[in-house]
Amino acid sequence: MLSGNLAEFPLLRLLETLMGAARGGALFIEHPHLAGCIYLSGGLPVHAEAGSLRGLEALELLAGVRSAPFRFESETQTQEQSIEPSLETHQLILHQFEAWKEISLPDNWGLILRGKGAPEKTKLSPLELAVLTYAQGQRIAKTLMNPRLSPLETAQVLSKLLRLGLLEARLHLEIRPEPLVVLSLYGGGQGVAVIDEDLYAQWQGLLGGPFRVRLRTKHQETTLRPEPRINMQGRLGLFEHDLRQLRLSRGMPVEAWPEAG
């Protein structure tokens, strides 16, 4: 069994090696966000799967993976044939790999895409706007499996949107909402969520920079500016104005979590 990482052994070289040896079997690509497999027969790809994609589209997507563990199992075969083993197909595969070289996407396809800036100020084609909308809050890997576009086309648009600063790719953090109890604060402040200084430091550390507090009440969600204070463990301080607006009162349970920004 052959195994390694695409970061050290790129997929194109791997396929050429297997092709040269006329090997048959299954090449599993174990990307954390994109499980894929290329089936070979006599050294030529006959079937490929990548997430929800099949055939040449799956192969096109896998061609863009730059770093992921892989393993080749010569005993594993498939009855499916979604790729025609021909010279044209071979040429097409080579073209796909070449096209990916022109695309600049983060290597980590687990990053989450979020809209940034004002898209209305930039002239975007309907296709680009569609990708921008589709990408919101999705991982790069999931976005590349856009059912309306080929992976390469999507990657090209994504690359442009990231370059223009209309999208940003951020690490996805599993931050559980913190159950807190509302505490009333007096004075003229508004739009502020007062939290304990330790929780503030913890959230700031997790996000690695400034953040806002997302607050979920029984009826709605809102975003507030965080302010750290001492001795606020388990509490979320809200000024009277916000209490009225959010229809909250002292002692009510809420959930809060940080959001980058």
Binding site: V181, S184, Y186, D196, N231, Q233, G234, R250, G251
Partner: peptide
């Protein structure tokens, strides 16, 4: 009024400390 809200009004929080 505030004193009553902060004490009797918050009686359901009687077992919730601020970490102390």
């Amino acid at each position: 009024g505030i004193a009553l809200r902060e004490t009797f009004g918050a009686i359901r929080e009687r077992f919730q400390s601020f970490g102390g």
